[in-house]
């Protein structure tokens, strides 16, 4: 593998977004790019990430390879890169190590690091194609604020999407709270719009602890999309120029 990324910051943000959810995971490298799928220890949340091969220049791969990485180790090495550095990932066919090279734009500094790889036996879940009943896109900063605010009052949030809008509500020991967003279109700054596509009303309850964790991906994209259907996991997606980070969260269900 040899994959060169114009901005090291992209990989730094991706790893920052997922490192608190999963510790060890495989970066699966194939013709479509570098992909990752991993569940948290409790099997409540799952992250699925793709950095498309088009996002790298060049992207050279002789044969598919899985790079078993400890994300804490990778974070330490990525801290040694500036966001604007050019990052090159290199690995052999049956690698023991992953090599990371950081070059500044002026081309007068080259930093070379290696991290040890591990064998990770990871089960990949089959995620069914789902026609979601509701898809809500909103500013990622707004979603982050809502999750943090409501998490002060409660462990859980109810998300209700209807024609009127989307309502996030919670109640806890000290009281209760809710935030309702209505659809609106910001012509000048589309990334600040809230869009609600709905085929039927949805009401689901989720643990805020995980949602707050997902929001660490807000640096990747100014827009987040929530896809919901009754009684199925929530999909939270942050789209990047050439790839995505998706989180799935199992709902809380009444007995």
């Amino acid at each position: 593998l040899e994959a060169r990324l114009e901005q090291a910051g992209v990989l730094k943000k991706v790893v920052d977004a997922i490192k608190d959810l999963v510790q060890d995971c495989n970066f699966d490298c194939n013709d479509s790019g570098i992909a990752l799928q991993a569940m948290d220890n409790s099997h409540v949340a799952l992250v699925s990430m793709l950095l498309k091969s088009e996002g790298f220049s060049p992207y050279r791969l002789d044969r598919n390879v899985a790079l078993g990485v400890n994300l804490t180790s990778l974070t330490k090495v990525l801290r040694c890169a500036q966001n604007e550095d050019i990052l090159t990932l290199k690995a052999e066919d049956a690698p023991d190590t992953l090599s990371l090279v950081f070059e500044n734009a002026e081309n007068d500094r080259i930093s070379e690091y290696e991290i040890k790889l591990m064998d990770i036996d990871q089960e990949h879940l089959g995620i069914p194609e789902t026609e979601y009943a509701a898809a809500i896109s909103m500013p990622s900063a707004e979603f982050q604020r809502i999750c943090r605010d409501l998490n002060q009052l409660s462990e859980s949030v109810a998300i209700e999407a209807s024609k009127e809008g989307v309502k996030f509500s919670c109640s806890g020991d000290i009281g209760s709270g809710s935030v309702t967003l209505r659809q609106h279109n910001n012509v000048d700054r589309p990334e600040l719009s809230t869009k609600i596509e709905l085929t039927e009303p949805v009401a689901l309850t989720f643990s805020l602890k995980y949602l707050v964790n997902f929001c660490k991906a807000s640096a990747l994209s100014s827009v987040v999309t929530l896809s919901l259907s009754n009684e199925v996991p929530l999909l939270v997606e942050y789209a990047m120029g050439s790839g995505f980070v998706r989180f799935y969260l199992a709902p809380k269900i009444g007995e």
């Binding site: 099997h43 409540v44 089960e123 879940l125 799935y248 199992a250 709902p251 269900i253 009444g254």
Partner: peptide
């Protein structure tokens, strides 16, 4: 009272 489900209930292992 609602209880937390896990993803295995919705997604299949290969």
């Amino acid at each position: 009272v609602k209880s937390q489900t896990t993803l295995g209930r919705f997604f299949s292992l290969p």
